[in-house]
């Protein structure tokens, strides 16, 4: 089973995503960017297959997490789907340039997210 790490500071987003993904994936959720980075950084040999990453989070925001992963070859195979309420062109470009696989804006369709995850992981 593929594993997915969810990083979102919003409790309801974590609940919703966990609920939606729990049947097909091994899901873990964290609530801030620093925690997300720590988990990735210390468990480099046991990385999740995919991260669903929010931008506006305490600790480190999503862009900064991406920036840290971007210069690091341990994370070359790690897929990142951004899921954020920031929907401006510049935000999307910034994330994709920093190595995000895909970008979705909130409000989002869970079915669409599931389809994208499936495509990315297969």
């Amino acid at each position: 089973m593929h594993s997915v790490l969810i990083a979102d500071d919003d409790e309801e987003m974590r609940e919703l995503l966990t609920f939606k993904l729990q049947n097909g994936y091994d899901v873990t959720a964290v609530s801030d960017g620093a925690e997300c980075w720590n988990r990735l950084d210390t468990a480099a040999d046991d990385l999740p297959d995919l991260v669903v990453l929010d931008v506006m989070m305490p600790g480190l925001n999503g862009y900064r997490v991406l920036d840290r992963m971007d210069g690091d070859d341990r994370f070359d195979d790690l897929e990142v789907i951004m899921l954020t309420s920031r929907g401006k062109e510049d935000d999307i470009v910034r994330a994709l340039e920093a190595g995000a696989t895909d970008y979705m804006t909130k409000p989002f369709s869970a079915n669409e997210l599931l389809a994208r995850i499936k495509r990315v992981l297969e």
Binding site: S85, R86, G87, K88, T105, P107
Partner: peptide, 8 residues
């Protein structure tokens, strides 16, 4: 009523 994070 609007998306604050997406509004220009």
């Amino acid at each position: 009523m609007y998306q604050r994070f997406a509004s220009p």
